[in-house]
């Protein structure tokens, strides 16, 4: 935090005024960003009756553990099932998705072949395809082959991430030196061995980024599961909470479970996010350079 050497006096005066203004502005913005989360935390600790009866921003009777118990035992523990489904869709989907994106992006970056640029532009076109526009036709296709209302209906479309390929190509160009590949080839290593034992290690941090992007995309996805699934036991947590929220008008007692469930489902993700922060920044920087 050192001020520039030239014009020290005026600069520091400027910074005193601006520092206060900037700090005030940022604090207002932070209240905006954190308020809903704070509200959710407070509301999750309250008994149902206090939701409407007490101030939404002040704690009242501490009832969090009862709320959690209700949440996890409601309808034979369906919420836990939803949470697990979300984890399955998001972790496995993003895992498989990252692997295939990495291989494809690596090949597009490191192998010279005809049609390479064309393929890449097709992938780029894919980035711009609104995925919700795909959901209805996919539903009709899947229903004609009996895939609707199964795990596959949500999982399979989720593994495809053109944006992941785009990132992987950029990362592979930047992180994997040509000479290293040449020497690996001269040593007689096959392309797959080179990729899995040399290149993927160099790309590892960026692969985490790709994984995170896809994880969030699947975790957030709502339209696709809504179109594809009717069986409650297959729902991801977003769809499950949406259903419950729709029933709160008729079953007001569900409200507390919707609130507690929302909190339970965002807290682990927020923690992972904060821990993995730096991967976002490298990824976002690379993503925006081209």
């Amino acid at each position: 935090m050192s001020t520039p050497t030239a014009g020290r006096r005026s600069a520091s005066r400027e910074s005193l005024a601006s520092r206060t203004a900037v700090m005030a502005l940022m604090l207002v913005l932070m209240i905006y960003f954190l308020l809903p989360v704070y509200f959710l935390i407070v509301a999750a600790t309250k008994p149902q009756g206090d939701l409407a009866a007490t101030n939404g921003l002040a704690f009242s009777h501490f009832n969090l553990f009862d709320n959690l118990h209700t949440l996890f035992t409601r309808s034979d523990g369906i919420f836990l099932k939803w949470a697990l489904n979300s984890v399955i869709y998001a972790v496995l989907g993003a895992g498989v998705g990252t692997l295939i994106s990495a291989m494809c992006g690596y090949a597009l970056a490191k192998f010279a072949f005809r049609g390479r640029e064309f393929l890449f532009s097709v992938v780029l076109g894919g980035v711009l395809v609104p995925t919700t526009a795909l959901a209805l036709p996919l539903f009709l296709l899947f229903s004609s082959i009996g895939l609707v209302n199964t795990y596959w209906a949500v999982f399979l479309p989720s593994i495809v991430s053109p944006f992941g390929v785009y990132l992987a190509r950029i990362f592979a160009s930047a992180a994997v030196p040509e000479e290293l590949l040449e020497s690996a080839r001269l040593d007689g290593a096959g392309e797959f061995r080179t990729f899995f034992s040399v290149a993927s290690r160099l790309m590892a941090p960026s692969l985490v980024t790709i994984f995170l992007f896809q994880f969030v995309a699947i975790w957030n996805n709502f339209f696709l599961p809504m179109v594809m699934l009717q069986k409650e036991s297959l729902f991801p947590v977003t769809l499950g909470l949406f259903e419950w929220n729709g029933q709160t008008a008729r079953a007001p007692l569900l409200q507390e479970s919707v609130i507690t469930g929302s909190l339970v489902s965002i807290v682990p993700v927020i923690i992972v996010f904060v821990l993995l922060q730096r991967f976002w920044r490298t990824g976002l920087a690379a993503g925006s350079l081209k």
């Binding site: 960003f33 989360v37 957030n220 977003t238 949406f242 929302s262 996010f273």
Partner: peptide, 16 residues
């Protein structure tokens, strides 16, 4: 703090 909402699915954000 500013990035935190990105971890919240749109449905849940709308519910909040």
């Amino acid at each position: 703090s500013a990035f935190l909402p990105y971890a919240v699915p749109g449905v849940i954000a709308a519910i909040m």
